[in-house]
């Protein structure tokens, strides 16, 4: 079921002849623990950084460029998605120097709409699949969901892990599912992915359900082992969604993973990041925990909707020197 390459690499990293749940459990349990209080304190400390003037202007534009502008509602319509795509391409119609966002993030069935609306731009289409947000469906459904999105032109797939399997210790099952979805992202048929390239796979850990930082670390490593291109905190459908300490732990994970394997993996906090100040704190964290290489939309994203407008308001304040109001930015 899982791709041979992911399995082969996992065997090598784990130093085992065959991947078993037991060997995977041993490996994950062998990761260093996370002290919750210490991790919280470190995140809070980074939260006291003060980003002013030129660095603030730079950070605002960088953050805008890292946004996966998101709508994930049952009520999403074609026009709602088109409207979101318009906003993604011209976040501030009054200021053409405003950067575009990185991607729009939508349900998989709306991918064709977004692909069409964003044609000609560099903005990616990201689709949530695998029976998002609960992930409660058969593997066949999850694979079909994913393949459909990729075929429809999604550049990025945001999948959810099976939290039930993870929490009950069926790590091999989680691994296999991620690896299988990864393989589905790579499929390339006649109507295949744009540019013929594989879609990048973001693996949503739904850290709010994993509850402990130790679990967040293990899930991060498990996802990376199985072939994730990105690890993502949350679906945004439950609280807590992204938090600074959880993102801190995931940034440590991708940093350590690159040290171990040489492969760079992206990080995407999603949900609950609403203000420019929040975004700058996250950027500080990326900068100081993972480092310079991750300060790039290719390696770090914000899954957000209302964040964009706050960034735009702050951007206008910096440009005009006066505070702005909600009526001066577009709602979508």
């Amino acid at each position: 079921m899982s791709s041979p390459s992911a399995t082969a690499r996992a065997r090598e990293l784990l130093g085992v002849g065959a991947l078993t749940n037991a060997s995977m459990t041993r490996w994950l349990n062998g990761l260093p623990g996370v002290d919750q209080v210490g991790a919280d304190a470190r995140a809070a400390g980074l939260g006291t950084r003060s980003i002013k003037t030129t660095s603030k202007a730079w950070a605002i534009d960088t953050a805008i460029g890292m946004i996966d502008l998101t709508t994930l509602e049952g009520a999403d319509t074609e026009s709602r998605v088109r409207s979101l795509c318009a906003k993604a391409m011209a976040p501030d119609p009054g200021d053409p120097t405003t950067p575009q966002v990185a991607a729009v993030c939508i349900y998989s069935d709306l991918v064709p709409v977004a692909v069409d609306a964003l044609r000609g731009s560099n903005i990616h289409v990201a689709a949530v699949t695998t029976a998002f947000p609960a992930g409660r469906a058969t593997m066949a459904v999850k694979l079909t969901d994913t393949r459909d999105a990729v075929r429809a032109g999604a550049h990025e797939i945001d999948m959810v892990i099976d939290r039930a399997a993870f929490l009950s210790g069926r790590y091999l099952q989680v691994f296999n599912e991620i690896a299988a979805i990864k393989a589905a992202c790579a499929q390339d048929d006649a109507n295949g992915a744009a540019n013929g390239a594989a879609a990048r796979l973001k693996v949503i850990l739904e850290t709010g359900e994993l509850a402990t930082y130790d679990n967040v670390r293990r899930a991060s490593w498990l996802a990376m082992l199985a072939g994730a291109d990105f690890i993502k905190t949350s679906t945004g459908k439950l609280s807590p969604a992204a938090t600074l300490p959880v993102t801190l732990i995931m940034l440590e994970a991708v940093r350590d993973w690159r040290d171990l394997t040489g492969t760079q993996i992206g990080v995407k906090p999603a949900g609950g990041i609403r203000t420019a100040k929040d975004a700058m704190t996250y950027l500080v964290m990326v900068n100081e925990i993972a480092g310079d290489d991750w300060v790039d939309p290719h390696w770090f994203r914000f899954g957000a909707s209302s964040l964009l407008n706050d960034l735009l308001l702050q951007r206008q304040k910096l440009a005009n020197g006066r505070y702005c109001g909600a009526d001066y930015v577009t709602i979508d």
């Binding site: 003060s50 660095s55 730079w58 950070a59 900068n287």
Partner: peptide, 10 residues
């Protein structure tokens, strides 16, 4: 030079 420089914040 780092991408993200922090401007003085005295």
């Amino acid at each position: 030079m780092a991408k993200f420089e922090y401007a003085p914040a005295p």
